[in-house]
Amino acid sequence: MSTHSRTARSGDRVAGALAYGVVGLGLAFLAIPLAITCLMAFDARTFLGPLPPPALSLHWFERLASQADILSSLRTSLVLAVLTTILSVSIGTAAAVGLARGDFPGKGILTSAFLSPLIVPPVVIGFGLLLFLSKAGITNGMARLLLGHVIVTAPYCIRTGLASLLGADRRLTDAAMILGATERQAFWSITIPLMKTGIITGAIFAFAISMDDVSISLFLSDPSATTLPVTLVSNMRAAFDLTIAAAAVILMAVTVVLIVVLDRLVGFDNVVGQGLFRS
């Protein structure tokens, strides 16, 4: 073996080990904190003690369930997430269909405008809405939250809707019409089913984002309507104990359910193809 290829090989070995090391450490860094949180949520101790917990119990969950503000804010969050999802999917799907229907002047600008809430810091959206809605006289907490959440989730639905329409050839609606379907019938029997993956992906993202948002909700929540994350943040700042770990486990469970639904109905590979993650 020549010296050249020998150094090349050892260089490869070092580089390979380095790369695998980074990958391993990265995955560990992603997974370990979440695993610790799940474990600590079942800690039988009544105080925050070092790992590992000497015994397991559900008492942090019981404590969580006994807090009235947690339960009412969980209800608010769920109602809000469902309403947000319905509104965002309807508005976003309609807009995607409108944008995909032929070229028209201003199409590019309109598309960018629809997606622009994604690039504005959420705190700015929240603070801006707070000032504007107070001025406009809209004081209903739920309505304010709903508007704020729709603003940041509808762009996802538009994006996934547009991506799923890329595969839906205009000729398919032409085919439906030549077979006797009216424009309306073609829309419901061809266009909407073809957008299925985009609609589901958009809906799940909208639900998850609405469930998790803090930055916007913190400004728009009021005593009548406070979301779960907002309550958790203020609890976290008041006292750092493990009830929040218990809440985190519950929220993670919700996310996992969403993920399983997403995989069953759409498939992860298709989610990546929905244009949500692109350079």
Binding site: L172, I178, T182
Partner: peptide, 18 residues
């Protein structure tokens, strides 16, 4: 189109994938 009794075989067929 839906008021005409015309059949059309599309290029690349345009079969409904779903």
């Amino acid at each position: 189109p839906y008021e005409r009794n015309v059949g059309l075989l599309f290029q690349h067929y345009a079969l409904f994938p779903h």
